[in-house]
Amino acid sequence: MSSYPTTWRRPPQIIPDRRLRIAVQIAALVYLVLAVGSVEVNWMRVSEGLERGQRFVMGFLQPDFTSRWGDISQGLIESLTMTLTSTVVGVLISIPIGIGASRNIVPRPVYLFCRAVIAISRSLQELIVAIFLVAMFGFGPFAGFLTLSFATIGFIGKLLADEIEEVDETQVEAIRSTGASWFQMLNYAVQPQIMPRLIGLSLYRLDINFRESAVIGIVGAGGIGATLNTAIDRYEYDSAGAILLIIIAIVMVAEYSSSYLRKFLQ
């Protein structure tokens, strides 16, 4: 009756081999030690900084919207216009690219070309693109507009293509069997299936573009980022706090209204 074992250990789930498991654990530990060791911290500088950090937190809690309001509003307008124009242009370009990058409806050379465009756009960081475009087009929102449009193409193009590749084949077949042309097929079989997703993605990208517009200003591509950079350089933490609060508020409004808009459109 009591011949059952009295001990039980949970069998390892991910790596069943004991030696490999221990090796992986040791490797992870060694890496962590080395990585933490490579962080050289100048504690003097950090402790000095704590006082500045305190000032920043105070600035965040008591933001100063007024004394730099001219710069802030100028930066905001630049950022917002840049966001909208780049999203519209980016989406318009990414629609043909996305269609071209869908394996199931285009010939192979077109597919490869469009996928390559998407891959380049996705693998280049917005900030790096911005550096180059600022060098070419000069400082100001136009370089920012180009950067964000370029990034939008990769983002929307990829997700749109993935969506088209997953459309219900039977609907495409049904429309094709009526003798419809390629464009009619696109219009009747594919478009209805992907439209809600495209709208959702565009709104999402609008949100991302606004956030990114705050970043690329740091390298001179205009917008609220430039204002923020200046404020931090001048140690005006109360103005910087105000700018950050405005960014957070706009992102929250954008997120809330885009979810509302998506519900409304469906």
């Binding site: 962080v39 050289e40 911290v41 100048n42 500088r45 950090v46 000095e48 900084g49 704590l50 500045r52 950090g53 920043f56 900030l127 956030r211 990114e212 705050a214 970043v215 740091i218 980022g225 923020l228 950079n229 931090i232 350089d233 140690y235 910087a240 950050l244 960014i247 957070i248 992102v251 929250m252």
Partner: peptide
């Protein structure tokens, strides 16, 4: 809502580069 680059910008100003 705040990109890591902006966080970095702030932190470099506060605790120094590194």
């Amino acid at each position: 809502s705040i990109n890591s680059l902006i966080w970095a910008l702030l932190l470099v100003a506060i605790i120094g580069p590194g």
